[in-house]
Each structure stands twice: as structure tokens, then as C-alpha cells.
Write a protein that binds this DNA or RNA. Sequence first.
DNA 1: CAAATAGCGCACAGCTTGTGCGCAACTGGA
DNA 2: TCCAGTTGCGCACAAGCTGTGCGCTATTTG
Lengths: 158, 158
Amino acid sequence: MHGISLDRYDLAILSVLQKNSALTNSELGERVSLSPSQCSRRKARLEAEGVIKGYSARLDASRLGFGLRAITRVNLKAHGESMDDDFVTLLTKHAMVREAYSVSGDADYVLHVIAKDLTEFSDFIHHHLLPHPNVTQVRSEIILRSMKEEQGLPVSGG
Amino acid sequence: MHGISLDRYDLAILSVLQKNSALTNSELGERVSLSPSQCSRRKARLEAEGVIKGYSARLDASRLGFGLRAITRVNLKAHGESMDDDFVTLLTKHAMVREAYSVSGDADYVLHVIAKDLTEFSDFIHHHLLPHPNVTQVRSEIILRSMKEEQGLPVSGG
DNA sequence: CAAATAGCGCACAGCTTGTGCGCAACTGGA
DNA sequence: TCCAGTTGCGCACAAGCTGTGCGCTATTTG
């Protein structure tokens, strides 16, 4: 969390790699004006320091049959630590829940849910979320169109 | 969007690669019970077909100084195509807006906003979002804790 | 001002990738 | 039933990539 300082080369490398991590060290080196060997060393260091958490393939959701996405806000009844635990288990268990955040505001939890279609989504809400003893309210916004979906973080180095 | 059929090997490869795309074809082959050469070929095909959209490094947000995240819902005044365009430009322009969706429900847009701290977030809301002529209402939930943050999609092959 | 340190590119050994090839297992038509 | 065509497999190998030892330079430190 601290003791790590990133220079402009590190930031440039991070910026490039979060857009395309399949580049060779030569290609990466061209983009950030560094030799392949230094790119290799810096990459290894950033991984060891935990700044780079890992590498992922980005998949096309619609080609894999996920046509429906929604932002769902959930309110809970009680707020004891152990009370929430059971609800969190529910979220963790279901692959349809892609993201789950506990939030401060009108709602207690905000979820990003993905489903094959409206039927599957509705089934999840009515058969899994609403029947949970702690859930008092569920409000959803169905995603119509994605205007922006950045893969990474705004790294200033490039 | 159609004409693509994925067998169990493809699904297994996708499932593994979205968790860790830095694996060699040998390592990938061990996990999905296939030779390195076939992994290479299938990977290339999945890329060409667009099922794999690309490869990214996952970065640690907090180590890069992004301590605050929020889900922000926005309501607009008018709903002509060209009216929205101006607002969408605003979203696209700001690196703080990581995700932006037009939605059906109580709100018109849902944003995933990232900021250094509460001050920077507040500045964005009050100096950029609210002053926009089309914006009528802005409601935010500050993310306290992330319970789940899946990188990819629920691929059944693994 | 000298010693220590940090960071660079070069070179090279070892590993990885992607393709040609031959083989086996399915598919479909006569 | 049988056989030609097709598909998908692993092996082998050439080309290319990765990561480390090394010597060098620039900056920091006492």
C-alpha cells in the first residue's frame, strides 16, 4: 500500500499493458522508449509489488449468450455483521452477480448482474434475491446501451 | 454474432484465460487437457472470431491513488438523440467516468465513477455533471467495500 | 570528491510460439 | 456398407521471445 514509487516509465508501461497485455517486450519497449530487457525487469517488479494484479483475456459477452445486464440496488433489514454474511454468501454463490458493492447512500448494496435474457434475470430476482429473509427492497435498472466501458484505470503516464 | 460454435475445449480455454492470460500454451494445455499446439491454434481462432476481444493487465486501483469509487445515477431533461450526444461527450471526455450505461428504470444513465478522494469526486459532480444543461438529477452511492469483482464472464467450461 | 547505488542496453541461453506434417476419428453420399 | 472428404489431434522444428549476467554511465550520499 505504501513505499512504492512509480516513475514515468512505470506509468507508461501500466497504461499500455492494461490496454494490451499481449505485446512482446520489444513492442512494449518501442511504445515507452525503453529496451526489451528493461521492460521485462520493470514488468516483473510491478507484478511482484502487486501493482499489476494479473492478466486477463477480455471476452465478448454477447457472443457467449449474455444479452442482459442490469444494475440492481438492494436494501437489507438488519445490519449486524453476521446478518450481512448470509446475504454476501448468496452474492458470492451466484455467477450471475458479476460485481457486488456495499455502499453508503440510499441503498445498502449495488450489484452488476448479467443474464442470458430477461426471464433468467427475473427468475434470479424473484427466486433468489427477494425471498432472502434480510432483503427488504430490490430496485433494478436494465442496461440498454453501454456508452463507455474502460478496461482499466486512468494512468497518467500515457 | 452467429455461426460460431464453441466446444468444451473452447469454453475451458476461455474460462482459464480470463482468469490468467499470462499462461504459456503448455500450462494452458495441462489445465484443459490439450497439446500446446492445439491451444495455440484455438486461441488464434477465438481471437480471430472476436470471442476474445483482447488481453489486459489488471491493476491495483488503491496503489495508483484511486481511493474512492461511486455508482452515480443521472436523470436528463430532454431525450432527443442529439440532446443526449452532448452529455455522452461529457462522459467520454472524463477519465474519472470508468463505465457509463444508458438504462431503463428510474434513472436515465448509470455511471461508475472513480476518484482520488471525496473532494475530487465532489468537484466532478458539482463542477461538471450538475452544471450540464440537460442534467436534472444526480444521485450517488459511495462504494464502501467490494464484495465481489469478477474479471470476466461465467463460462461453463471450467 | 570519492564510494556506493541505481538504472541502462547488450548478448546469449533457454523457453515459447506457431506451422507443416502425418495420422486417426468422424461425416455424408452412393 | 463402404469410401472419399473433412475435421481435429499431437509431434517436431524453426523462428522469435524472455529473462539474467555483465559492463557501463549517471545520480546520490557521506
